[in-house]
Structure formats: structure tokens, C-alpha cells
């Protein structure tokens, strides 16, 4: 039994994982992540890959909404920019798939920064409406600029290959997706240990005080849009090469709202929350579908109702979270950890 945690240097005090328990937990998580594809079935691998892409997208959105407090309804459109840029570069210009991903992310960052310009004058709901414009404009361009995007017809992307190996199988792309997710996680966590991250949170909490402390609101708001869109574009680009087909219907307003729900349910302003929210929102529909199939034998009428039940449960879950745990799954996870910290002597 340890009596407490004692630091002897500022380096220890500022470390991310301070106790052996935290380090062991992280090690187990990494081991699980590394071994998962070797025993999981194809169905679960597909789910894991979907979660991985959602995690990247959710972290990206959380940087903007959760940490910097700039509400965005343009998530779907920014993912579309990433996906279409990567797809077009590879399909029309022969850029290797792995090179197209960072280029697409950079281009999305550029587009995101442009649509972030209204944030310099607008806040809260007004900004949300301005980003809604981004969603509508970008999707309109995607569906109408036939020569480049293929319009409403799907854009077919060549199968990604690495040294002659097909990469878009669930097993192979797992490593690409989760490798990127881990990299983005580390960088995001680091970002919020330095003055850049603190400036973002300062803008969210109290922007006037932030400007008086020497934080250039103009610069840091746009930077938040740029970094966020970069990560979101990355998620879109990965999706394009994973599916090898890019379709505008995957990037509608629904997607923006789903991602917002993800970070609200997971926990605003938290990387762990982005993981939990992404996993939750990906697994919940799958779970409902499976439950419906299992019940089909006894209740044949249920099959046609599944899509409606799914939507209803989605709405219900969000309402329940907003009422009972507005800080999201991350808070529940924290409470569980706090409970077991002194277990079995927690009183």
C-alpha cells in the first residue's frame, strides 16, 4: 500500500503518467491494440477500423470544439475535403496513396482555416451557423463540380498497395489507421501540455482575459481551426483509401452531428473522451443491429423497425448523457478510477 505520491523533480510532476498503475494500464492497452488483429474476426476488425477513423475525427473535432470552444457543424464537410483530396490525387494524378494522405490533411487545414475566419467576429451559436455554411458550400461544390469530384457519382480510388501488398484489407489497414491514431493522440496530448494548448483552452474559458495575457486571439483561433481540420482531413483521407470509394453521402450534415454527439458523450476537451465517444457511437448501432437480428426469430416485425429504433436510442442516449453526466464517459471512467484508487478501503 502506498501512502502517497511524492515528486522530487518538476519533470516527474509534469509527467503524463505519474504512478505505476497508470503505466501498467497504458502498457495493457498498447498490448491489446497490438494483439487485437491476430485473434479478432473480420467483422470485429472492420469495427475496430471504423472506430480508429472515428477516433481521429473525434480528436480533431474536440481540439476545436472541446478545447478551444469554437462550435463547428462543418465536420462532415472537412472530412469530405480530406477524402476527396486524397482520392482525386491518387485516382487522377497517380500520387501514391501514402503520400496523398498528408497532402490531403494539409489541404483540409487550409480550407478549415478559411472557414474559420468568421470565428474572429462570431461566437457560440452564430459561429455554429457560419460553420454550417461551410458544410453546405463544400458539399455543394463536391456534388456539382463533376469534372473533378465526379459529382453525385462515387469516386473510385485505386487499391492502395505497399511493396505489392494490398493494403485495404481489414488486417493491413488496421495498422495504418491505428498507427495514425496513436501518433495523433501523442501529439494532441503534447500540444495541451504546452503554451499552444493552454492558449486554446484560455480562449474557450475567457477570451478577453486571454487577449490581455498576450494571446493573439486572431492567430490562435485560426491555428485551432487549422490543426483541427488537419486531423479531421486525415480521418477523411484514411477513409478514402480504406473504402477505395468516396461518396458524398458519407459526409452529410448527419456526420457533423454524429461527431458532435461523439465528443459530447465521450467528454468535451478530453482525448480519452474522444476515444470513448468514438467507440461508443460506432459500437452502439452495431449492437442494436445485432440485437435486432437475434430477436428476429421471436419478433419477425422488428427487422423493419431497426433503423428507427437506432435513431430513437441515439437520441435517448444523448439526452440521458446531457442530463445525468454532462461531462461524458470520460467522467464516468475517472470516477471508476477514483473509486478503485483506494480500494478496498474507499470510504
Amino acid at each position: 500500500m502506498i501512502s502517497g505520491i511524492y515528486y522530487t523533480s518538476y519533470e516527474q510532476d509534469m509527467a503524463l503518467r505519474k504512478t505505476p498503475a497508470q503505466r501498467i494500464r497504458l502498457a495493457i492497452l498498447i498490448l491489446l491494440l497490438l494483439s487485437f488483429p491476430f485473434f479478432a474476426s473480420r467483422y470485429y476488425l472492420t469495427l475496430a477500423n471504423q472506430i480508429g477513423i472515428a477516433v481521429i475525427g473525434a480528436i480533431g473535432l474536440n481540439i476545436l470544439v472541446g478545447y478551444t470552444g469554437q462550435i463547428s457543424l462543418g465536420q462532415g464537410a472537412f472530412m469530405a475535403v480530406g477524402a476527396y483530396t486524397a482520392g482525386i490525387l491518387t485516382a487522377h494524378y497517380g500520387v501514391p496513396w501514402w503520400a496523398s494522405i498528408p497532402v490531403a490533411a494539409l489541404f483540409t487545414a487550409l480550407v478549415g482555416t478559411f472557414f474559420g475566419l468568421p470565428s474572429l467576429r462570431l461566437k457560440g451559436l452564430y459561429l455554429a451557423i457560419a460553420t454550417l455554411a461551410a458544410q453546405v458550400i463544400i458539399l455543394w461544390i463536391v456534388t456539382h463540380w463533376k469534372a473533378v469530384t465526379g459529382g453525385v457519382e462515387a469516386l473510385v480510388v485505386p487499391t492502395p498497395k505497399l511493396f505489392g501488398v494490398k493494403m485495404n484489407t481489414d488486417f493491413n489497414f488496421y495498422w495504418v489507421i491505428w498507427g495514425t491514431a496513436v501518433l495523433i493522440t501523442i501529439m494532441t496530448v503534447n500540444l495541451f501540455r504546452t503554451h499552444y494548448g493552454r492558449a486554446f483552452v484560455a480562449i474557450r474559458d475567457q477570451d478577453i482575459a486571454a487577449s490581455v495575457m498576450g494571446i493573439d486571439l486572431f492567430r490562435y483561433k485560426l491555428l485551432a481551426f487549422a490543426i483541427s481540420s488537419f486531423v479531421v482531413g486525415l480521418a477523411g483521407a484514411l477513409l478514402a483509401h480504406y473504402r477505395t470509394i468516396v461518396n458524398w453521402e458519407r459526409f452529410t450534415m448527419d456526420v457533423s452531428v454524429t461527431y458532435l454527439a461523439m465528443i459530447i458523450i465521450g467528454g468535451l476537451g478530453s482525448v480519452t473522451g474522444s476515444y470513448l465517444g468514438a467507440a461508443f457511437m460506432t459500437l452502439l448501432p452495431a449492437l442494436i443491429t445485432n440485437l435486432g437480428r437475434a430477436m428476429k426469430a421471436s419478433f419477425p416485425a422488428i427487422e423493419g423497425l431497426i433503423p428507427f429504433i437506432q435513431l430513437a436510442i441515439f437520441g435517448l442516449v444523448i439526452i440521458i448523457f446531457l442530463i445525468f453526466e454532462s461531462e461524458g464517459l470520460n467522467k464516468i471512467w475517472k470516477d471508476i478510477k477514483d473509486y478503485f484508487r483506494l480500494w478496498p478501503f474507499s470510504y
Partner: peptide, 9 residues
Amino acid sequence: QNIELFRHM
């Protein structure tokens, strides 16, 4: 005058 700290930090 009215405290303007970064409340969640």
C-alpha cells in the same frame, strides 16, 4: 473586477 480566470484550468 469580476474574476476572469480560466475556470476549467
